[in-house]
Design a protein around this nucleic acid. Structure first.
Lengths: 245, 245
DNA sequence: TATGAAAATATGTTAGGACAAACTCTTGAC
DNA sequence: GTCAAGAGTTTGTCCTAACATATTTTCATA
């Protein structure tokens, strides 16, 4: 019937019990130990077996339900969800994307200066005269140009260097500084490139570019980044997961 | 200090108490009664005032935190989040989008037939020989062509009619049938249009189209829809909210 | 045999209490 | 006057307990 997943709980750990449980169950699903459609051990039994309270077990399961890994139905039980419904929370950058796919990303910083920009400041919820670090980069994958990325960073990160950006990608640099973007608004469109863009991206006359502008914030609502990117449409598409709760 | 929001709880309602509370608090924020940065009444006090238990109040607040409406910090208290961080869960269709903006959307069904398509079936996690309803529509806004939408519906919805589709939009039709898409994977790109697309969308020679392919599933993981759309890039962009929890 | 009522099963909601941990602010010692 | 310890506040974690509700299964009855 229900499959019993091996779980070890360390009560002396600072990691909350419900999270320890959620992690291990999540791994059991990711590893294929639990297959889509498999019935899941019910809450009460699981709590009893692990010597945890039902609320604790419930919270762990809820975490997985939120990720789309499990489906609960009252009266029926909990089952492992269809793999297509699994959703990784993600707020990735192009650099991360390329790394994951196995490309060899590199970056040329085309420009790097402190500026004021009323429009960007407004989008980031900053005063109009706020000093911003403006960065323009050309991103290459295996030495082929892929994207031109214009970014603006809020005051407090004006000291990000060219070298950092060429080594690691913007989101990596920010992560290292303890910045955790939590929510972003993106607008995606398409247009014909400007002559300068066409040259940098080595585009043929009729080829379009895919554009994305993004504002990102951390959990407290502080501005993290404003970005205005354009991509070679032949070589890049944007993957998005949308969900409703 | 902390602002007390007027809340009335109906214990005889079938709506869970925590949800009643969450809704009313959410409205207080949406209406501007609570402003970003405002301190929020603490959990214990709120529970006492409303004669609810702390877990119930906590759950309501958690709901708002998940939506990005509130920010909690241990020892400090809960505050209303910056408006930029608010996130509406959404899985909208072009029809909904146009309605919201105030456009006058209309639809012409270009084709409507039952087919088999191995590639689409695979994407929807259906057997390769599954019968699908293939729909091709031209979407207009104020009588100007805006998008060509190719969609495939799984067996079980083969009886959707042309009239339904012209009246309401695909997601409306599905909603009416009790289908609730919960998660979708979208891939967004750009390309030069085919001659047929150029003609239907009345595009000038060099204008590109924005493309989106989408697979949508319900909570149980059953296929809901496969879509392959292309939009006039001049008149349309795709808004996405990305978040990390 | 078919139908409906009851039992079994599992998740959903709510309550109340205890202690832990993070953060602020005050107070006291040097 | 500065710095550190401690008190106070608030959210975070965890437990026990009870009842509600949705769904399937079983069983008795017509």
């Amino acid at each position: 019937m229900a499959i019993q997943v091996g779980v070890t709980i360390d009560r002396s750990s600072p990691v909350p019990l419900y999270h320890q449980l959620a992690e291990q169950l999540s791994m059991a699903i990711a590893s294929g130990r639990l297959q889509p459609g498999d019935p899941f051990e019910n809450e009460v039994a699981l709590a009893e077996r692990l010597n945890l309270s039902r609320p604790t077990v419930r919270r762990a399961i809820q975490e997985l339900v939120n990720q789309g890994l499990l489906v609960r139905r009252r009266g029926l039980g909990t089952t492992v969800a269809n793999r297509k419904v699994h959703r990784r929370a993600e707020l990735t950058s192009l650099y991360d994307d390329l790394m994951r796919v196995g490309g060899r990303p590199s970056t040329v910083v085309l420009s790097h200066e402190v500026v004021c920009d009323e429009r960007v400041a407004a989008a980031l919820d900053l005063p109009a005269d706020a000093e911003l670090l403006s960065i323009v980069r050309l991103r290459l994958s295996d030495d082929r140009p892929l994207a031109i990325m214009r970014n603006w960073l809020p005051p407090g990160h004006l000291d990000v260097t060219r070298a950092e950006l060429e080594a690691e990608g913007l989101y990596g640099v920010l992560r290292r500084r303890g910045v955790r973007p939590v929510v972003a608004h993106q607008t995606i469109g398409a247009r014909t490139p400007t002559p300068s863009e066409r040259r940098h991206l080595r585009l043929r006359p009729t080829e379009p570019v895919l554009t994305m502008t993004r504002v990102a914030f951390d959990a407290v609502g502080s501005a993290v980044e404003y970005g205005d990117h354009c991509y070679r449409a032949q070589d890049y598409s944007i993957e998005v997961m949308v969900d409703q709760r």
